[in-house]
């Protein structure tokens, strides 16, 4: 999976004169590890929303191996995302009241009636891999670093071909941030997934093979 072809992308928000994003062409290869940097407000999150089908695009093409997200409806984009994208967000979005393993399983539980076979074993394996020992610890009692590692495990559960992270280390302190950065790059490489990370954290950006710099909604260089 992966191989992105992006053409003539233009995203505008009501009330903004200039387009929030204006990218004539961008291509990514399968398994590539890409950093998305730039000053705050330059359009990193907007681009990620576009690439994951969270934001509806009216102008251009966002083609992942023949699937053009621009032509898909809301429901179809949800299904595509569930099948192909693992997402890690700055503020984790873990659900309090549920244990670590329940949080890892939650997207699968919500997406279908029954858990697919082997999902629980896979969740245990992933949690162990990211260094979480107590699988049934309630997430609200965890440290921020632990929380983000649970979120990484959750993103990988459905074996997505694309792993996307938006400022995954921005709300973590030094060591925890480094650990998460290492996990993301290491795990993506292990499973051969394409990794796209929006960040201005040098610990993370430095690890990634390719750096895209955004400014005012346009790609530099």
């Amino acid at each position: 999976m992966a191989d992105l072809t992006l053409r003539d992308l233009e995203v505008r928000f009501p009330g903004l004169e200039r387009p929030a994003l204006e990218i004539p062409a961008l291509e990514l290869r399968s398994g590539e590890q890409v950093a998305l940097t730039g000053p705050s407000g330059c359009g990193k999150t907007t681009l990620i929303n576009v690439l994951t089908g969270l934001e509806r695009v009216r102008h251009g093409h966002v083609d992942w191996q023949g699937t053009d997200l621009v032509t898909l409806g809301e429901g179809a984009r949800d299904r595509w995302r569930a099948a192909n994208v693992g997402l890690v967000m700055q503020d984790f979005h873990l659900f309090p009241g549920l244990s670590a393993i329940e949080n890892v399983l939650l997207p699968q539980r919500l997406a279908r009636f029954r858990l697919p076979r082997g999902a629980k074993e896979e969740a245990r394996r992933l949690l162990k891999r990211v260094g979480i020992a107590r699988l049934d610890q309630p997430v609200e009692t965890m440290s921020r670093g632990q929380m983000q590692r649970v979120a990484v495990a959750r993103a990988l559960l459905a074996h997505p071909g694309i792993i996307v992270a938006d400022e995954p280390t921005a709300s973590l302190d030094g060591d925890a941030g480094t650990a998460v950065a290492d996990l993301l790059t290491g795990l993506a490489r292990e499973v051969g997934a394409t990794l796209i990370v929006a960040s201005h954290d040098p610990r993370l950006v430095g690890h990634l093979g390719r750096v895209l710099r955004l400014d005012g909604g346009r790609l530099e260089g």
């Binding site: 994951t52 969270l54 809301e74 429901g75 949800d78 299904r79 995302r81 569930a82 099948a83 994208v85 997402l87 967000m89 979005h93 659900f95 939650l106 997207p107 699968q108 919500l110 997406a111 959750r154 459905a158």
Partner: peptide, 20 residues
């Protein structure tokens, strides 16, 4: 709405959100 958006972003279909 952010939490609901997160559920969607993580792959929960819209009808699941409605049902919840």
């Amino acid at each position: 709405r952010r939490q609901i958006g997160a559920l969607r972003a993580l792959g929960a279909p819209r009808h699941a959100i409605f049902a919840i």
